[in-house]
């Protein structure tokens, strides 16, 4: 593990992003080991994952995509989000000068290992304001059921 905070060029970075990364690195070091299918940080799109008693909610921050081109797959407990983002920079225009090129371009794929007890048939996905929201329902098994007496 390395603390990259001090080796960075601070003038081109938002200080809070650096502090935030430091905080995460510290958490990673002292907060116990990650799972074998742990999620690597970074990359495109950024992911936020949360859960409720009823469902697992995954948010992928993937702006500027055609919703129809996003591939969301659920196979053997692993959810993958894939697609392609086309560069906005002009190509073949000799007179255009690129000053900053930071936005992701190209094909992407990220995978999320889901916990047991989810219902692979009850998955919904929507894409709004550049955020893909995938909701995976948990199986009803754990919920209390009334059994009719014959």
């Amino acid at each position: 593990m390395s603390f990259s905070l001090f080796s960075r060029d601070m003038s081109s970075r938002d200080m809070f992003s650096d502090l935030e990364r430091l905080r995460r690195e510290l958490q990673q070091t002292f907060g116990g080991g990650p799972s074998i299918r742990g999620l690597a940080r970074g990359g495109f799109p950024a992911l936020n994952i949360g859960s409720t008693p009823q469902a697992i909610e995954i948010f992928a921050y993937a702006p500027g995509l055609d919703p129809a081109s996003i591939e969301v797959n659920l196979e053997r407990g692993t959810l993958t989000v894939a697609g392609e983002r086309v560069s906005a920079l002009p190509e073949g225009d000799e007179k255009a000068v690129v000053h900053i090129n930071e936005r992701f371009a190209g094909r992407f794929r990220r995978a999320v290992s889901l916990p047991d007890g989810i219902d692979p048939e009850a998955v919904s996905a929507d894409y709004r304001e550049g955020v893909l929201h995938v909701s995976v329902k948990r199986l009803a098994e754990a919920q209390p059921r009334r059994i009719a007496v014959q």
Binding site: S17, P45, Y61, A88, A96, V97, E102, F104, E129, G130
Partner: peptide, 25 residues
């Protein structure tokens, strides 16, 4: 605190174009 959104900036003869990723906004 705020996140620093990634941007693309390019310039042609008539001006500058900027793209910024602001997902969720």
């Amino acid at each position: 605190s705020a996140l620093l959104p990634p941007v693309d900036v390019f310039e042609d003869a008539t001006g500058i174009t900027l793209y910024a990723d602001l997902p969720g906004v």
